[in-house]
């Protein structure tokens, strides 16, 4: 015991600077992510502000039951999952494709320009993006409908037709994020040992073969990790954009858990109910993350842990 303590102490003395560096992030997570977790209790309480979270009377699973019994329960789950799934399906491959194509470019000036231009939309606030979408898709004088008009197509009321909502949401997401998300892949590609390419060239590999056998395998771990993380977020769609773009005419496809929580939990100040739904949402997220991680660990070498 004493010997072990002495060893620990000497290691602390040796590595104290590293420990010091690690301290702020550890404190950050403890203070802002672990301590507030007791607030989850609010989902099981009839929250009364004066008595505080701990003093409020227990409500059991009342709020969960209310949510499960809501006629909108399945619709919310479906909309949330589908919106995410489509985003993942169309949105996940785009940055990979872009990064690979970009890495094949010779002219460094052109390369830099394209890359910079591609991630500019990332810096536009979501409110502005939503405003742009509203303006462009307007059936009265929107740019898109004017172009369609030139082709002889009658104006489409994009934002008032439930069938269009997912398309608009997902495609604008891709436009806004593919450049930014490709940065990590570009970095991963830059990390691939150039000798591999040289060796492949010696063996007479052509460009497509180099991509297939060197670039893609080289960034595969990055792809898998990001995929797992994305799957872990399947149930958390960026609800702000939905909130800015949806309206009663598109609730059918656009109303997601996040917006429902906003309407009931925040606007009606039913904090317990809102917390219950969010907790349920997070439990599903964690389950998905665990499943994805487990599958990946079994089928490939890469996993989060």
């Amino acid at each position: 015991m004493i010997r072990q303590a002495a060893i620990v102490l000497s290691r602390v003395r040796r590595d104290w600077i590293l420990l010091l560096i690690a301290l702020p992030p550890i404190l950050y997570y403890v203070i802002f992510h672990y301590i507030p977790m007791y607030g989850i209790l609010i989902a099981f309480k009839d929250f009364r502000p004066i008595e505080g979270i701990l003093g409020s009377p227990w409500a059991g699973f009342k709020y969960f039951e209310q949510f499960f019994n809501s006629i909108y329960f399945w619709r919310l789950i479906r909309n949330t999952l589908l919106l995410s799934l489509y985003s993942l399906l169309w949105g996940f491959s785009m940055p990979i494709l872009f990064a690979v194509l970009l890495s094949e470019l010779r002219n460094p000036w052109f390369k830099k320009t394209v890359q910079t231009a591609s991630y500019l939309p990332h810096f536009i606030s979501i409110a502005v993006v939503a405003g742009m979408i509203v303006t462009f898709t307007s059936p009265v004088d929107g740019l898109i409908n004017q172009l369609l008009g030139l082709l002889g197509i009658a104006p489409i009321n994009f934002l008032a037709e439930a069938g269009w909502f997912r398309t608009i949401f997902v495609s604008s997401n891709i436009w806004q994020s593919f450049g930014w998300e490709s940065i990590i892949y570009i970095a991963a590609i830059a990390g691939i040992n150039p000798h591999l390419y040289e060796a492949a060239e010696m063996d007479g590999a052509r460009r497509w073969q180099k991509i297939r056998h060197i670039t893609l395998p080289g960034i595969a771990p990055t792809i898998v990790i990001l995929l797992i993380l994305n799957i872990g977020n399947l149930m958390s769609v960026g609800f702000e954009k939905v909130l800015l773009l949806y309206n009663p005419a598109t609730y059918e496809t656009a109303d997601i858990i996040g917006t429902f929580v906003y309407r009931r939990g925040i606007q009606n100040a039913e904090f317990s109910y809102g917390a219950a739904i969010s907790l349920f949402n997070n439990v599903i997220n964690i389950a998905l993350l665990l499943i994805a991680n487990y599958t990946s660990r079994k089928t490939s070498e890469t996993s989060l842990w």
Binding site: Q66, I71, Y72, N157, P248, A249, Y251, N268, E270
Partner: peptide, 23 residues
Amino acid sequence: LTTLQTDINTYLQENLVQFVMGS
């Protein structure tokens, strides 16, 4: 009222708008 009206209002707004627009 708070419990019932959120869903009722959602239903009402959504359906009335859809009726008017013919969807």
